[in-house]
Design a protein around this nucleic acid. Sequence first.
DNA 1: TATTGTTATACTCTATAACTATA
DNA 2: TATAGTTATAGAGTATAACAATA
Lengths: 162, 162
Amino acid sequence: MSQDKPAHADAQRIASAIGTLLLRANRMHLYDTLLEGHTGIDRWTYPVLSGLARIGPSSASELADQIGLDRTVTTRYASRLQAAGLLTRQPSPHDLRATVLQLTAEGERCIQTLRARLNDLVLEALPGWSPSRIHAFAQDFDQVVQNLVGTPAAGDDEPAET
Amino acid sequence: MSQDKPAHADAQRIASAIGTLLLRANRMHLYDTLLEGHTGIDRWTYPVLSGLARIGPSSASELADQIGLDRTVTTRYASRLQAAGLLTRQPSPHDLRATVLQLTAEGERCIQTLRARLNDLVLEALPGWSPSRIHAFAQDFDQVVQNLVGTPAAGDDEPAET
DNA sequence: TATTGTTATACTCTATAACTATA
DNA sequence: TATAGTTATAGAGTATAACAATA
């Protein structure tokens, strides 16, 4: 069987690893490790700040679509991050209804720190890997994730993800 | 830079993919796709049933530790799954305080179906990959996840993950 | 005294509904 | 009429506290 249909057993292994990574306890542990020591940001507001850093200054509605959260939740979390001094609200010059969310200098620093820390965590999870092995894995993993979550990079275009 | 420190850029790519996979919208989409059409089981009770299938018949406390949920939540979700006919409660023969949770035949069938479906989803995310490429990726991914979430297979030994 | 299962309670996340202002 | 932002409200997940029964 490992000769005839090796892909099946390997797919099971991949599926199991995905399940492990998504498991609440492990997810939370990863987020907590990443955010440890940071004030003004937590597991729930982090995706908002991170998403804003990824797509750049944008309205709450745009950002909400990107991270898959409701508009109302996004604006509430944005208020928390604003209170923590990590982002600002500015009226849009083009649309008087819209508000532009933008990272402050402190917000930028925060994101830089968190990105670096996550990178370190990842590198620690690849002990002794050769650069070529890391490169191949990065390519493959990226492709798998893109295919798994659908074509869009991060958010989804479906109306109600709930 | 891609010559000097290729590992850094690749680590960033891996980190980004992890972030994408863990993003709420994508996580939910994956769970919903997996559970589509199944009644009596949802995003929240699925880890309970899946965990029970993985570790076999066990008490609610044991299971709770494994999946990183509180005892009280686990027992409540177990009640739902019991009402849906997917698991049974039986008094433990060794400990009169304990209750043994166990999958019913229908629960077993349910898990089999879900595992097969997840496998299919994974295979679809590896279009045209050679068996050796799949095998290498499965090994690497498994190792990365194990290292990322800590030594324990699924749950964590820390007291309060929250 | 500690642990198991369970329920009661409170807290938080999240979405729907509703309101105001603008396109 | 539709859309942006926001707030009010309600529903659901989750943890802490508390209880009875047993180790």
